[in-house]
Amino acid sequence: MTEDVILEVRRLTKTFGGIMAVCDVSLEVRRGEFVGIIGPNGSGKTTLINLITGFVKPTSGKVLYKGQDITGKPPYEIACLGIARTFQMARTLHKLPAFKNLIVPLCSPRVRKFRGGKYGERDDIAIDILDDLGFERDSFVPYKIAGTLPHGYLKRLDLARCIALRPELLILDELFSGMAMSEVAATLPMLEKFHREGLTIIMVEHRLRELFRVANRVMVMNFGQKIADGPPQKVMEMEEVQKAYLGTEVEE
């Protein structure tokens, strides 16, 4: 196993009652890659992310991060190792002002290691991060109670929370779903920038056009199984993939 494999998923399986949500999935992600995961609804993409980030315990299989076994570790420890994830349903701390949402990751042991983090200073860092993601610092937006913001902002707030953690691996669960075209157009270059700066990104997405613009590798899931893995164009030409998508997914 080489140094530059950042994440290795080994034969991961998860069953809920009788349902096989994830079935014997293996995956290797190298440092600096931008991997897309696609698949019809209910194919187990979110469950795979939950397994990697510790929110769900696997029935069998292993997850290795930088060579270290992280299977079964609690989510906060995994996050502190540098894996950040967004939630499909954009979860935020909706009773707090938007920028205060970022105080939580900024208080985590991981970020404390990076900087002193004195009181007051954290608010400024939070505003800086939000400003980059389109919450203009001179407007009211970053100071509003998160719960009152429109959906697109919540999704980006979720992303901002991940960025504040200074992750090495970023996992996005359908970040673009429910975002307006203009918001997608503004967020995509940011992701590309983070990627250029060395961040490894795994992105679950239904909006294939956007995904293919940035991803250099795509994994396809169907019924909990991995059915294809490779460069976007090649994968989409494969027969199984087209079959899996036929009738279930309307291409834009």
């Binding site: 906060y76 420890e77 950040a84 701390l93 009773k95 990751p105 208080c107 991940c162």
Partner: peptide
């Protein structure tokens, strides 16, 4: 009102978000 309190209030709002942010709830 302190940063410490933000974490506490966050836990009440949605403890999974706080965990995802690397904080041991």
């Amino acid at each position: 009102d302190e940063d410490f309190g933000m974490i506490l209030r966050g836990i009440r709002d949605d403890d999974r978000v706080v965990m995802a942010a690397g904080v041991n709830i």
